[in-house]
Design a protein around this nucleic acid. Structure first.
Lengths: 155, 155
DNA sequence: CTACCTGCAAACTTTTTGCAGTCAA
DNA sequence: TTGACTGCAAAAAGTTTGCAGGTAG
């Protein structure tokens, strides 16, 4: 996953101004293991910026995604974002259903897939969902609090 | 893909009343090769029922999905629906980006995937996107009209 | 200094809910 | 006949846009 400074660099190099808010956004995503919904982001950012408005969050999420700093994924519950993977080689993900943290899978099934009759492949998606070791352990302990996707970040 | 009567049966057996509108819905999905958004469905149904309201479409889509007659998938552009696959064995899909028609892939990569360290797999998704033979042919002919997802259905 | 960024307000899209009349079984 | 289904209206939720003042570079 990208580090705070890498995300800031991406924005800076593309001509974006690095405001306090955008730096905090970069830090939030750099230190979040899982996916964040616009609402998650808004609620987190509100703790640091009192007069924050939802539209600015949307604008920044969109810009950061268009610049390639963030990845956008559709879940059943709606859109979510996380920092782009820093690994440059093609890979897939295991995704924990509890904490939404992702783990890389190097294996790509595409090479082994028999594509029928003149179908021209453009892209593919291979995602594995389940429960990660940590969340299973937490559950086993009988703790009712799942590890949250939100993170504590010192501003 | 399920046939009209199969969809109607599913609804009927679960205690739903088979209204004219629901039968038409069943027929629409049975004869549609691709995915349909709520809007697509609404616009199609409007041609047959003048006073149709959007909320009824939503209600019926939700009910049919909960009964297992329809599959619901999130695309970048939003939710879409199509009739459940009638094949009973596990499979995946090639999805055409133009007409959104799907083609089955029997190969499942899950068996070959090395899952790390105590990750408990619950489900997986493997989808291949591209252009199908028909749409490629249409494009090659220089025709600007992509084969629509909507279908002509005699009421 | 200047163009970009932000908050505010409002519009817009998508989806859900309550209610009363209508209709399938 | 009766409970489920539908249309209408309105609300709720999610997202986008225009504008005027503020700020990074």
């Amino acid at each position: 996953m990208l580090k705070t400074e890498e995300i800031v660099q991406i924005m800076s190099k593309q001509g974006l101004r690095i405001t306090d808010q955008r730096r905090t956004l970069a830090k939030l995503f750099a230190e979040s293991a899982g996916y964040l919904s616009p609402k998650d982001v808004y609620e987190y950012m509100c703790q640091h910026y009192s007069g924050l408005s939802f539209d600015t969050v949307y604008r920044n999420l969109r810009v950061m995604q268009e610049l390639g700093a963030l990845e956008q994924i559709m879940f059943e519950e709606g859109v979510k974002f996380k920092a782009r993977c820093s690994e440059d080689h093609h890979h897939h993900h295991l995704i924990c259903l509890t904490c939404e943290k992702t783990y890389p899978i190097t294996f790509c099934p595409m090479k082994l897939t028999d594509v029928p009759d003149q179908f021209q492949v453009v892209k593919h998606k291979f995602e594995v969902f389940g429960y990660c070791k940590d969340c299973l352990a937490t559950e086993a302990e009988g703790l009712s609090v799942p590890s949250s996707t939100a993170v504590e970040i010192s501003k």
